[in-house]
Amino acid sequence: MSAVRKARTQEGGAPATAAPFAIAVENIVKRYGAFEAVKGITFEVKDGEIFGLLGPNGAGKSTLIRMMTTLMPVTAGRALVAGHDVTKEPNAVRNMIGVIPQALTSDQDLTVYENLLIYAKLYSVPKEKREKNIAAVLEAVDLTKWRGAQTKTLSGGMRRRLEIARGLVHDPRIFFLDEPTTGLDPVSRIAVWEMLNNLKKTRNLTMLLTTHYMEEADRLCDRIAIVDHGTLVALGTPVELKQSVPGSNVVEVQFARESDDWKARLEALTDVTEVQSQSAGVYRVLTSNGSQTTTQLVEMASRLGEQLSSLSVQNTSLDDVFVHYTGRQLRDEQVKAVFQMPPRPGVNA
């Protein structure tokens, strides 16, 4: 892609500000013996955007992030982060990024301030800047009042905000977040969304995140990449992805009686573009005319003497996009291994 070709000129430690993209990944591959976990993926993340990475368990999302954050060597291809090659200039990359793991890794026996201080020292933040940076990130995540509180006394949402503050204390340009709201209650999750949007605006951050919450991706991400079986299957804004799915409405119907004929009967209705079988007697019908398809479906059931257990109409969602491109729904994954903190600058991986 032309954007990635421009990024090639940044080899040899060129200034990060010269990079046309915050992140540029070109034909990146990761193999474990004969198994290819990532199969030549290419994409770019624009400076200042929130970029979402979606995919089922084993799709290659975590492997991608680990390569981009220098935690795992690249088998083939290349990745540039802030204009620096992750293979040739890993320490330069580490200086430019913050990484927020899915697991809560702050020391529970230390105070909020002590956790931030240790992290600032690990990243060699000059002594004269530490207090200023710590005060700024505490203000950004609304934890100033809890500066002296032991971490174990914080709620789950507050601990997640501490993790985010810890990742910001060394003034990174690019933020990697692995499932940032997993395990949070709905109120805390929305609070984190609002905070991330505010951080993007006030700190001019570029963010790349993985998530299994479609609403999260829809509300937070400027663009989304869907990865499946180690390949990139779709890339675009949430609106573009929804528009790429045939049918502007989704009719979800459940028949009281199971039958092998339902799918074929539904596919024969006017304006129906696709029918997805969800479970016994439950179908998602993609259509360009939701109201007409609903009327025809009710008339069909009445004519056949069948009962409908439920019927609903909705606009195309990111769930429908995911099903369209991967053939299955995105379920919550099991808890993954702890996503480790990148080595501090100056220490070889």
Rank of each mutant, 00 (worst) to 15 (best):
P90Q: 01
P90H: 02
A92H: 02
N95V: 03
I97A: 02
I97R: 05
G98N: 03
P101L: 07
Q102K: 05
A103T: 14
L104K: 12
D107Y: 15
L110M: 15
L110K: 14
N115W: 12
N115A: 11
L122S: 01
S124Q: 06
P126V: 04
R130D: 07
A135F: 04
A135D: 15
L138R: 01
D142A: 13
D142K: 13
T144V: 12
K145L: 08
R147G: 10
Q150Y: 14
T153F: 08
R160E: 06
L162W: 07
E163S: 11
G167I: 03
V169G: 01
H170S: 04
I174H: 01
F175K: 05
F175R: 00
F176H: 03
L177D: 01
D178Y: 09
T182N: 03
T182V: 13
P186H: 09
V187Y: 08
V192H: 14
V192L: 14
M195G: 09
N198A: 15
L199C: 05
K200Q: 15
K200M: 11
K201T: 13
R203T: 00
N204I: 09
T206W: 10
M207Y: 11
L208A: 14
T210L: 11
T210P: 12
E215T: 10
A217F: 12
L220Y: 13
